[in-house]
Amino acid sequence: MNSVFSRRVFLHAAACTFILVQGKALGTAGKAFAATPKTRWGLIVDARRCANECAACVDACVRENALHSHDRPATDARWIRKVRVTDKTTGFVSRFPVMCQHCASAECVRVCPTGASYRREDGLVLVNRHLCIGCRYCMLACPYKARGFVHEKTSKQAPGSPRGMGTVEACTLCVHRIDAGGRPACVEACAKAGHGAMLFGNFNDPTDPLAKRAVAFAVTALRPELHTDPGVRYQGVTP
C-alpha cells in the first residue's frame, strides 16, 4: 500500500504547517506590543515635599478618571488617598499619597481566579474589566488597600479610563497618558501646585531622572517585609 498521502506524511506536514503558522502569528503580534520589559514605569514620592493640606493629586486623579461623587464622601471611589503615618517610638509624622504600588510580585495578580488582574511587561498592574467577575479576592490580597469595587452604575466615564459596576478598579498610573507619551495626572498636578513631590519615570533606564534618584538616595518601599517589589517608592518615610 503505497498511497501518496500516508498517515505519517500527512501528520508531519500538518505539524510543520502548524508550527510555521504559529511562529508567523507570534512574530507579527510581538511587533505590535508597545509595553516592553525594557521599561519599568514607576514613581518616587518625596513625603518631605508633600504639603500638609494639599490634595492636588487626589483631585487631579478624580478629574482625569471621572471618579464622580455620589455625595457620600466616605464611600466615593478614590484611586489615590493621602495618609498620615506616625512613628510610635520617635513621634515622626509623615504624610504622603498611597495608590496602587504596581508591584513586581503582585498578590492581586496571583489570587485572581479569572486572570483579570494582570501585570503588563512595562510593570503596570491593571484590571481587565472584560474578565473581572467582581469577586474582590484581589482587594483582600492587596497589602496596600489600593483597590476598590464599583458598587453603582457609572455614567460620564472618561474615554481613557473605562469603569463599570461590578468590577474592581485601581490606579492605572494613567496608562492612557503613558501610552500617549505623557505622565500621570497626579504627577502633573503636584508639579503644577509647586510641590514637585512626585517623580515619574522608568526604573530600567539609567539616564532617567527617576532611576538616577533611586540609585543616589534611599528610596523605600511601603511594607518592605512583604517583598512585593513595588514600582512606587517613597522618600522621607520610615519603613
Partner: peptide
Amino acid sequence: RMNAAYPLSVPQRQTSIE
C-alpha cells in the same frame, strides 16, 4: 480589538471604541 488590547495593552486608539 478587545482581545488585541489584552493582556499587553497596546496603544491603538485609532481602532478603539473611543
